[in-house]
Nucleic acid binder design. Sequence first.
DNA 1: GCATATTTTGAAACCGCTTTGACAATTCAA
DNA 2: TTGAATTGTCAAAGCGGTTTCAAAATATGC
Lengths: 341, 341
Amino acid sequence: MNLKEFSDILGLSPTTVSRALGGYPEVKESTRRRVHEAARTHGYRPNRRAASLATGRAMAIGHVIPTAFNHEMVNPIFADFIAGAGDVYARNGYDMVLSVVPDGDEARAYRNLADAGSVDGLIVHGPRTDDPRIAMLEANALPYVVHGRAPIDTIAYSYVDIDNLRAFRRATDLLLDLGHRRIALLNGLETMDFARRRRDGVVQALTARGLSLQPHLHTTSEMTEHMGHEGALRMLRGDGPPTAFVVSSHIMAIGVRRAIGDAGLTMGRDVSVVIHDDMLSYLANGSTVPVFTATRSSVRAAGRRCAEVLMERINDNSTPPVQEVWECDLVLGASTGPAPQ
Amino acid sequence: MNLKEFSDILGLSPTTVSRALGGYPEVKESTRRRVHEAARTHGYRPNRRAASLATGRAMAIGHVIPTAFNHEMVNPIFADFIAGAGDVYARNGYDMVLSVVPDGDEARAYRNLADAGSVDGLIVHGPRTDDPRIAMLEANALPYVVHGRAPIDTIAYSYVDIDNLRAFRRATDLLLDLGHRRIALLNGLETMDFARRRRDGVVQALTARGLSLQPHLHTTSEMTEHMGHEGALRMLRGDGPPTAFVVSSHIMAIGVRRAIGDAGLTMGRDVSVVIHDDMLSYLANGSTVPVFTATRSSVRAAGRRCAEVLMERINDNSTPPVQEVWECDLVLGASTGPAPQ
DNA sequence: GCATATTTTGAAACCGCTTTGACAATTCAA
DNA sequence: TTGAATTGTCAAAGCGGTTTCAAAATATGC
């Protein structure tokens, strides 16, 4: 049923019906009620595509997910981020459109969404250290918000990020204070901005005590359970094994813990572990006492905030960009203890 | 830039340009090349909303994600399913629109998407045993495919599912063959169809050997690491502790393994575990030897297949529904062994 | 060279909604 | 009672494409 048919039923013009439904003030209250009532009973709902063509607003936000940060991997934090953002979109009447694209084709995907007018705004996921997407989007008129950030000084763009550097420096300091000296870092791919900052945080903390990050105690890879296990086990069985690990993701740390077990050691006693915890809904870090000592920040909250900022920018893109860097919590769990001996 | 402006630049009519770009045969090859070339250099791309209004096809598929299967939980298999489906959509020129809605509001979300003409088809996630959505969608003209299924005889709908019952019967049989008698089931919420079938599979296997599923060795909950840990620990520390667990998800099993450690036991020796593994990209079940003995089926492949089936049905909804039930693999890993004694 | 068949192109009518500007209908002040 | 101000409603013009149907251009047959 379209607007014309529906308004015929009511004996009103399409104009009036449209206004009644749209909440415009020029329509008598009794008429409005009648229209709403009829819309419910007849199941009429304005066609979104037509409305959006007429208004020029797509009422949709685009997210581009690289199908493989490197291989076949989908970032597991994605689901929670989306849940947070989607909540805000729904409240504001926006749809969320997802494009799953092979890694590397992202820039093209953004351009597609922009040129075809499919969306009113974009969220940029997983910024790299030197990310071409931001410059590309800037050339465009489309509002966007970056989850994370890239070290780009020339462009003033909006982002919501956590203070990765500080979080990982604090994590490392904690281990140093506990007497650990051979500290390993199992990091994400350091082409990603967040991973680079995390490494810098670890390095700063070590350097401040006259230590350095040993190459054999440092990996940079996809943050899977498998890579965590593999990396940790190799280190634990190699020369100069670490007494502590700083691990970039909870999932990865599950592999680390498995490796610690495989090596016949006990986590929290023989080997300490500090993780970064995105607080994924299906992977709570313990209930009362955290399983892992962790720096943490809710990725779902970040999704919510990114969406809010984007909504604001869609309504008024002339305001100065929003740039937020969130401090992480540091929670003490059962996975850390004094260095052996 | 719109079609009119663009065609003016070329000195052609909008009609011809539209045809050239749309791949229609009535346009001379040289003209088509010229149009394509110009589209590239001028960065012209047809407005998707306008095109879709004109053709009546939205070129988009809807997915509704309950933001909480019960609490604040987002199903972690979602990311991988989406990656599989999105791949197929992209290849066919479809967008994917996601609606995140509070659990319970799903039916309304489906109706919204349908009535507003936002999408050409829907994927139904997480069917319950008695799911109202299928009957609701059937009343609609919109093609849809269910990931999983519901025990509804009266409606012939398309679905792609795995044989949950058989998988869990085989898993249980394996444990029984190893001599286990006190077998626990840590299941998902049994309002979900898949979870009910899994329980039935376990029960069938036990019954066939004159055993039964003990209430104190059976939980049904969200499939989080936390619930796995809590459930398993309580059972292990209680009376008549299990010697083996059948666990409905990999994530949950990570909690089970942690509980086994907490109880001072060793997985694979003191306690056996069989899981169902959705083969999530960030959670590979070991590399050469599986960590967990598992029944498994790729949820990403299911996403791909659901999308394919839906594309077919959008093109021709008159064909008989596609109903696929996939057999799971059963892989032996390090988590199972003969029952103690 | 002309009539006819075949390509190629174009004008105009949609698709279903929003919104502007105009017109009734009502209210109010004098 | 009249004229102005205020409401409430409507007709029609977009929004930016696709597609039908007709016309122009080219190719074919005799």
